[in-house]
Design a protein around this nucleic acid. Structure first.
Lengths: 343, 343
DNA sequence: AGTTTTGACGTAAACGCTTACCGCGAATGC
DNA sequence: GCATTCGCGGTAAGCGTTTACGTCAAAACT
């Protein structure tokens, strides 16, 4: 079953069949319809590989992430894939496992499969590998790393707004002893969150002595929180650099026999699915993976048009109020004061 | 950069280059080395599509799952992908979203991309679609649905062993009022677990009146548990058809002001990552996704050899003891009695 | 020594599509 | 009425491999 049989049945040339399939405007409506009918009658669909070989376009996009096992990514992958499929493209997903060496493997895979573009949603990417893509005119889009240039775009997440909202919320609840559990310092996004936190607190005239570093995993959050609780005095509120960290913190707090939010309020970041189901449900800053996926795809899909000059895209964040935040111990709700409300 | 340039540099024909690349034994060692050197010198790697077109093999496997957002799947996907890449294959992942209509889309995608085999790790699959693959001699492997036949294998999970172990454990802790929150009845795997539970309880001479149905999601588990707690008397232990359900149950129990495991013991099923970090950490039955992935890949990879007659593969389950199970309220530990121990 | 077999390699025809180029009849311009 | 343009569609040359078949020298036979 191939394009020739269709051509024969529709009594046209293979070129016309091809043109019909590709929506060329050089075919009259009647001819188009005749071809369509032939295609349906035969149940024909084109061979993707032959297509790719002939046209030089694979209709394949690469999606490089750190680790599909990290709850941040599955939604991203799913959204990206959905959009891609809707546009007749496929997606090759590759995990770097947070490892620069594995990143190299990922890049090779992408190159070998001749992807039409790559969304790089992780930070283990060195310059040499980027040029590999650029030399081949492959559009790229980064999540919050790298800069826009020829054919490569960048998505910048407005972390600061989210952190601000979270701090406002916490401060509004009367907290003044506010801790932050940062992510690994080597991650740009983690550093940005931390600095946003520090800046925001200073604007409120609150000290920033409560600071620990986690690893963006549950265990790191757990340990960091344990260290925080091991100090002579303890904070009444904790912001975490991501939800996994916050979940770890929750565990450490419970183990210490303390209650959330009565003794300590906790705020996460990302709004991963499970955060709605922790005990108590986690107040967190939402970073919409759906939005990221949508923007990333558009960046790649449109890259060759628009002169191919990369763009900066902005993605917002927003506070999601659930049950893990409450008034600071020993304070009274002012009239009109903010209260955590489940959504 | 193509095979012809390599051929020219190595002073051989393109056929010889191709044979070298594909590890044919019809090339002398010296020639092979010469070609290898040329390949490296030019930094050549073959065009995958041309290869696919020429050989009819795409070195692509399909992996159909329900929903990457369901924590059961990411590990499975990752393992499968790892193994595939190690063997020079790529993986196309597709989500059915538990929807038979979307399954059709998935199948079409696989067909269009001419995958060399498909691992179908979900149950929304009707016979018609299966024949689509079989007509094209595409090897298939199912997870616990379907039967082994020409080119199609089946992985059967030993759910019963896991349920048995869980029940033994719970009974050993003195529980007699044991509830089960089942999965959706339309899922074979859910039915099997339920029946295993019922049978096991009967063997112990314990009634099976405590039975509710969830949906394998957190909310379903929550609601089912709430129903259980709304009865006149309540169970002292609950097994859930999967971990998500168990996590929902945990939430409902806490909301009711009860403690786990002091008032109620909870056991999950699957051992998804987050289960180690719930409050308290969940005792559960582990179903190794790594093992499933390994077996699935082997089934596909080896399918064309071995006469192509499908095989049944067995995958075991095992109990993981954590903190969510304890002695039944009002009972004393017997000497040598089982206690939940964290791992 | 002459014949057959074998092994290593080359030749060239697929594989199924895309697309540059060309031809041709009809519409348009003068 | 003739030349020009234009729109539609056909012809055929790729795209980069794989592989059936052919060739040819050397090895293994009579």
């Amino acid at each position: 079953m191939n394009i020739r049989e269709v051509a024969r049945l529709a009594k046209v040339s293979t070129a016309t069949v091809s043109r019909t399939i590709n929506g060329s405007d050089k075919v009259t409506r009647e001819t188009k319809e005749r071809v369509q009918r032939a295609i349906e009658e035969l149940g024909f669909y084109p061979n993707t590989w032959a297509r790719a070989l002939g046209s030089g376009r694979s209709s394949l996009y690469g999606l490089i992430i750190s680790d599909i096992t990290n709850p941040f990514f599955p939604e991203l992958v799913k959204s990206f894939e959905d959009i891609a499929v809707q546009n007749g493209q496929e997606v090759l997903v590759a995990n770097t496992n947070y490892d620069a060496a594995r990143m190299e493997v990922c890049v090779t895979r992408m190159l070998q499969r001749k992807v039409d573009g790559v969304a790089i949603m992780t930070s283990e990417m060195d310059g040499r590998l980027i040029t590999e893509f650029q030399n081949r005119d492959i559009p790229l889009v980064f999540l919050d790393t790298g800069t826009a240039q020829k054919l490569t775009s960048n998505i910048v997440v407005d972390y600061a707004a989210g952190v601000d909202a979270a701090v406002e919320h916490i401060v509004g609840l009367g907290h003044t002893e506010i801790a932050f559990i940062a992510g690994p310092a080597m991650l740009r996004s983690a550093r940005v969150r931390k600095e946003a936190f520090r800046g925001c607190l200073e604007r409120h005239g609150i000290g920033t002595g409560w600071m620990e570093e986690g690893n963006h995993q549950v265990d790191g959050g757990h340990e960091a929180m344990a260290r925080l609780l091991g100090r002579r005095t303890r904070p009444t509120a904790v912001l975490a650099s991501n939800d996994m960290t916050a979940i770890g913190a929750l565990g450490a707090i419970h183990e210490r026999g303390l209650r959330v939010p009565e003794d300590i309020s906790v705020v996460g970041f990302d709004d991963i699915q499970i955060s709605a189901f922790t005990q108590p449900a986690l107040t967190t800053v939402r970073l919409s993976r759906d939005e990221i996926a949508r923007v990333a795809f558009r960046a790649l899909y449109g890259a060759r048009q628009e002169g191919g000059k990369g763009t900066e895209y902005a993605v917002p964040t927003s506070l999601v109020l659930r049950r893990s935040t409450g008034r600071a111990p020993g304070t009274r709700a002012k009239t009109g004061g903010l209260e955590a409300v489940a959504i």
